[in-house]
Amino acid sequence: MATPRTLASTAVGASPSLWDPVVRLTHWGIAASVLTNAVLDEGGSLLHVSVGWIVMALLVLRLVWGVLGPAEARFSAFPPNPVTAVRHLRQLVAGRVRHYPSHNPAGALMAYAFWATLAVVTASGLYLTGGATPMQVAEEKAAVASGDWSALIAEGGGESSEEDKSLRHTVEEVHEVAANLLLLLAALHIAGVIVEGRVLRRSLVRPMLLGDVRRGK
């Protein structure tokens, strides 16, 4: 099966990595969701909560796919290994990069970091909304809009202690810091794709957009 190929052999027409539809759907879905929730909408809004749940589903699907998916989508194809990641970065600086059938070692670390941060963001978001599904949020908002403020009281919990408030504040901080970390990781990821694409002299974006582009005839 596909052994790691050198740059020399890619010129002959060896297959660059190809991504299956699940990897591509979850990748772009998560990208769009993170961008929407970090930049475009307001925290706590119905849209924000809905997108949060969607991103949780996307993350779950990608993680399931990391166990059940085809070879290059499975975690076993890109184990987190800081040593090889650093080696890869050094090769990248030297301009001589191996071709990997899945994520390269640095990209793999990035993927795991991204997923972990995403999990933190969704978990803290769930805490902040009390685990309310978008349907419940919508119901609450509708109730408040129609003048029934009891929903707010029930949510706030009449006798919320100082401890609860400070915990909530901490979680809010975590949610925000982790969200910013996501944007930072995304920027790093884009920079990595550009540099790697230059060095490998092929587009890394095309396979992620279109999937199998092994023979461009």
Partner: peptide, 23 residues
């Protein structure tokens, strides 16, 4: 592609449903 989209929608539904059940 169709199977993937189906799987995605299925996962979306399941996650919402699981959330509801935990509630």
């Amino acid at each position: 592609a169709a199977l993937s989209i189906f799987l995605l929608i299925q996962t979306l539904g399941t996650v919402f449903f699981v959330g509801d059940v935990i509630g």
